[in-house]
């Protein structure tokens, strides 16, 4: 359940930015989560409610975009989106560890009033 810590950090940073912008209430926090970031979105949503209670993000919505995993195959010189967690090139079946996207865990933007 490290999602609690992740939600806490996201909300803390969002509050910091919202205050700096002169806002008093956060209405929406937008994240970008890589499919291989090791974060369970449902657990994050659950934690989000808990960590926003009693602060300026209370009652706000959490929105996230899932970034698919993209790998690069050096043999074939192509990028591909693997199915599952074995990152096998669809052309040559060689496993790849050159992961180009899918590990993101970013706070993109905050909506506030």
């Amino acid at each position: 359940m490290h999602e609690v810590g992740i939600a806490y950090q996201a909300v803390e940073t969002a509050i910091e930015y919202a205050k700096k912008a002169g806002a008093t209430k956060i209405t929406l926090i937008r994240l970008r989560i890589g499919a291989a970031a090791g974060v369970v979105p449902e657990a994050l949503e659950f934690a989000y409610e808990a960590v926003t209670r009693g602060n300026m993000a209370e009652g706000s919505r959490l929105e996230y975009e899932i970034v698919p995993v993209t790998c690069y195959c050096k043999n074939c010189g192509i990028e591909f989106q693997p199915k599952g967690f074995v990152y096998e090139c669809p052309k040559c079946q060689e496993p790849s560890w050159d992961v180009r996207t899918g590990k993101e865990l970013d706070l993109m933007s905050v909506e506030a009033i």
Binding site: Q9, T13, T24, L107, M108, V110, I113
Partner: peptide
């Protein structure tokens, strides 16, 4: 007009402090 909705761009890693 204090009730204007602002969209604040952040674009940083959630775990930036740890990183």
């Amino acid at each position: 007009m204090s009730d204007v909705r602002k969209i604040i761009a952040v674009e940083q890693a959630v775990l930036a402090k740890n990183e």
